[in-house]
Structure formats: C-alpha cells, structure tokens
C-alpha cells in the first residue's frame, strides 16, 4: 500500500530524459503545469496529452509506474470530478434527487480531472527520471536568486535531498514496527474511527522516536565529514548544460508557444 507512492521516487534506467539537466527538467515541469492552466479546449488538452505521451515514451519508465502514482490521489480525483459534475450550474442533462448533472458540469469536471492527472504524471515524470541529488542540485541552482532575499536555499535543498533518501528506510521501519506491535496483539483493523486513531499511537511514537534518533545520528555524521553549510562547497557533478539540453529548451519553448497560440486562435 505505502510502497505504491511513486511521487518523489527515482526509476533507474538509461534514457534521453534521464540524461537531461535537472534545471531544465524543473523549469520544464513548471512551464508544463502553467500550460495546463492555460489550455481551454479539447485541442489544447490533446496537445498537452501528446506532449506528455511522447515524454513518457522517451523516459523508458514503465507506464504502470506512473499510473500507480495516481492511486494515491484517487480520492482527490473522484472528489474533484463529482463536485464539479454536480455543482456546476447550467443546462440540465440528468436529474438525480436534488442534484443535477449539467453539460457544463461534465465539461468542467472532466477538465479538472484530466488536468490533475496530467499534472501528477508530469511532475512524477520529473522525479522518476532525476536522482534526488541532481534534483536538489537543480533546485538549488534554479532558486539561487532567492538567496539575496536571505532565504536558506542551500539548506532547504539539502533537507529535501536527505528527506527523500530516508523515505525507503522509514517505510521499511514502519512495516517492522507495525508487525512488532501486531505480534503484541495490536489491532489495526477495527471499524470504529476512534479505535483506529488510537491504534496509530503504538506505531507513530516509535516511528517518530526513531526518526529523531536517525536525524541526530545523521547530523553528527555530517559534521564529522566537515559539513558546514553551502559556503565553499564544491560539487562532484557540477551542473553544465549540454547540446541536448539546449535542444530540449527549444522544444519546450515551441510547445509553450503552441499552447498559447492555440488559446488565441481558437
């Protein structure tokens, strides 16, 4: 169940997308998300969809993986869909008790759902093809201008990269703690909500305690390896744009122009 979360996970393989500069991928994802909010009609969605499909093929990541990421937000998807279908006023198609399904509702609902699906797949495509370290390197560089505003950009990037690295460890630990408490007769399948919330305590307390201990250990280990913030730090793999990156930027700009043009023309 918990293992299904693909957001923020890296899928190791070789592909054009894997080789691209993380800065490009971050900016690209950002632009793609904006583009999703600019499109107004089916042609726009078709362009965005085709663009995404091409990227998925290029990424060499099995499609299954991305669909699995959607499972996590299934409730949100259904909720968004249902709310929009029923609560948008307009030409009534079907009437169910007090609620009306309208043509506009269907339109808005399906649009919202498609938008969300594209958004999630688009951003998980970025994390699936970029190692967390490169991702944070990229983020650090992209956000560098914010340093002038005294924002701790390097530190934030470091925290993110560490957090991502610890996800698999903590998931494994969660599994172990659940089993250990089950072995002491803990019941996680009670139907009553209050009982279920209460049953989380024996899991969450050890998990937190352990996370704190790990954080303390890690801090010591980092200090022992001369970590003292971003100042004067060099990089094993400094970010450098290559030809493929420039081409990708070009493609990205073309896509964005297409979306805007489509919005103006139609």
């Amino acid at each position: 169940m918990i293992r299904d979360i693909t957001l923020g996970q890296y899928y190791q393989t070789e592909s054009v997308l894997h080789g691209l500069d993380p800065r490009l991928k971050i900016i690209g994802t950002f632009l793609y998300i904006i583009s999703l909010f600019l499109v107004r009609d089916i042609f726009g969605y078709a362009v965005a969809g085709i663009f995404l499909a091409v990227l998925i093929v290029l990424s060499h990541v099995p499609f299954k993986f991305m669909v699995r990421g959607l499972k996590g937000i299934l409730v949100l998807l259904i909720f968004t869909g249902v709310v929009n279908v029923f609560l948008t006023p307009g030409e009534v198609l079907v009437s169910v008790w007090k609620f009306n399904i309208t043509r506009e509702g269907l339109k808005v609902g399906s649009r919202m759902v498609i938008r969300l699906v594209f958004l999630v797949i688009g951003s998980s495509l970025m994390t699936l093809t970029t190692t967390p370290n490169r991702l944070t390197d990229g983020l650090e560089r992209v956000l560098k201008p914010l340093k002038r505003l005294k924002l701790p950009v390097h530190e934030m990037a470091m925290i993110m990269s560490i957090a991502l690295g610890f996800i698999p460890i903590l998931i494994e630990e969660l599994d172990k703690i659940m089993k250990a408490q089950s072995a002491r007769g803990a019941d996680f399948e009670s139907k009553k909500l209050s009982a279920r919330i209460k049953s989380m305590v024996p899991i969450l307390v050890p998990l937190f305690v352990s996370a704190f201990r790990r954080a303390g250990d890690l801090a010591t280990a980092m200090e022992a390896r001369c970590y003292h913030g971003g100042e004067g730090r060099t990089k094993l793999k400094p970010l450098r744009y290559r030809r493929a990156d420039y081409i990708a930027y070009l493609v990205l700009i073309l896509y964005f122009i297409l979306i805007i043009a489509e919005g103006i023309i139609f």
Binding site: K176, I177, A180, Q181, S182, R184, V205, P206
Partner: peptide, 16 residues
C-alpha cells in the same frame, strides 16, 4: 499471537 510470542530484532525501538 498471545500463545506464540515473537520478539523482533532491536525490540527496544518499539517502546511507546
């Protein structure tokens, strides 16, 4: 589970 007790490795990490 009351009859067959299982103690995991590092059981002290499960205290809460």
């Amino acid at each position: 589970r009351g009859k067959i007790g299982l103690v995991f490795q590092y059981p002290e990490y499960q205290l809460f």
